[in-house]
Amino acid sequence: MERDDIIEYSLGAQHSEEDGAKIRKNIWKVTALLSVITLLEVIVGATLSKTVIGDGTTWAFIKYGYIILTLIKAGYIVLSFMHLGHERKSFKLTVLVPYIFFIIYLIFIVINEALAVTEVNFPLN
C-alpha cells in the first residue's frame, strides 16, 4: 500500500553532479585542515613535551592551545562532516545547546569537587 502521510525528506537531500564536485572540493579542504592541525599537535607534543619544558607558563599556553585546536577540529567534524552546519537552525540548537549546557556543568562540578578532595588529601600544598 502506498502511504501518503510520510514525507520522504531523504529524497530532497540528493544533488547533481556539479554540486557534488563542489562538495567534494570542500571535503578535501576540511581534510587538509584536520591533518595539518593533527600534525602540528603531534610535532608540538613530541618536541615541546611537559618533561622537557616543565610545568610552567609555556606549558599552560601549549595546554590551552591544544584544547582550542581540538575544539576547532571537533567543530569542523560536527559542522562539515556530520553536516550539522547545513541543517535548520532549530535542529542545530536542539543538538548543541543541551549538550554544551550539561557538559559545562559536569566539568565545573567535577573539577570543583576534585579541588576540594585535593585540599583534604594534600593539605600542605
Binding site: 525528506y9 531523504s10 529524497l11 530532497g12 544533488h15 553536516h83 547545513h86 541543517e87 535542529f91
Partner: peptide
C-alpha cells in the same frame, strides 16, 4: 547544500504540523 533542509518555509508553516519542523527524517 540544496534540498529539503534549505528550502525556505515560513516559520509558522514549519511548526504547524504535518511535517518535521527540522525537515529531517525520523
Amino acid at each position: 547544500m540544496a534540498g529539503e533542509v534549505s528550502k525556505a518555509i515560513p516559520p509558522k508553516d514549519l511548526w504547524e504540523g504535518g511535517r518535521s519542523p527540522f525537515s529531517m527524517s525520523y
